[in-house]
Nucleic acid binder design. Structure first.
Length: 117
DNA sequence: GGTGTGACCAGCT
DNA sequence: AAGCTGGCCACAC
C-alpha cells in the first residue's frame, strides 16, 4: 500500500484504500459500510475525504464503486467530469438512474460481510 | 498549533 | 414526515 507524504505510519486513511481496492467488479459499496468495517461508524466522512486524496495517489483507486448509503453518486462531481463516475459504473454493467444505482440492494458489497471479519 | 471543513450517517426535534 | 445537529478523523490555512 502507498504511504502518504508526511506520514510515517498507516492510518485510517490507508485502510480505506485497501478496502476500496478490494471491491469486486460490477459491485459498489457505501462510505458508511467501509467506515463500519474499519470499526468507526461515524468516520464515514473520512472515507469520502480519503477518496478525494485518492486522486492525488499514484495508485488507481476505483472510487466510482463507492457511493453513499442511498446508492446515490454524491461524489461524481469530484471526478474529472461529472458524468465520468456514472460512465465507469455503467461500463461495468451497473445500471444508473437519475444519478442513483438501480438494484443497489443486489449490487451493494458490504466488506464486513463479504470479507467476513 | 487552533480552527474550519469535508464525496457521510444516524439520531433527535 | 422532514429538517437540523452532532460525531467521527485527517488535512489545509
Amino acid at each position: 500500500m502507498e504511504k502518504l507524504p508526511g506520514k510515517d505510519h498507516y492510518t485510517f486513511f490507508e485502510n480505506v484504500f485497501e478496502v476500496v481496492k478490494l471491491i469486486p467488479y460490477a459491485r459498489a459499496t457505501s462510505y458508511g459500510a467501509i467506515a463500519n468495517y474499519l470499526g468507526s461508524r461515524g468516520s464515514a466522512r473520512m472515507v469520502g475525504w480519503a477518496m478525494n486524496a485518492s486522486h492525488h495517489s499514484t495508485v488507481s483507486i476505483p472510487a466510482h464503486r463507492v457511493v453513499n448509503r442511498n446508492g446515490l453518486l454524491t461524489g461524481k462531481h469530484h471526478f474529472g467530469s461529472p458524468d465520468l463516475m456514472q460512465q465507469l459504473l455503467e461500463s461495468e454493467g451497473i445500471v444508473i438512474e437519475n444519478d442513483q444505482i438501480k438494484n443497489f440492494g443486489e449490487i451493494f458489497w458490504d466488506p464486513a460481510k463479504e470479507i467476513g471479519f
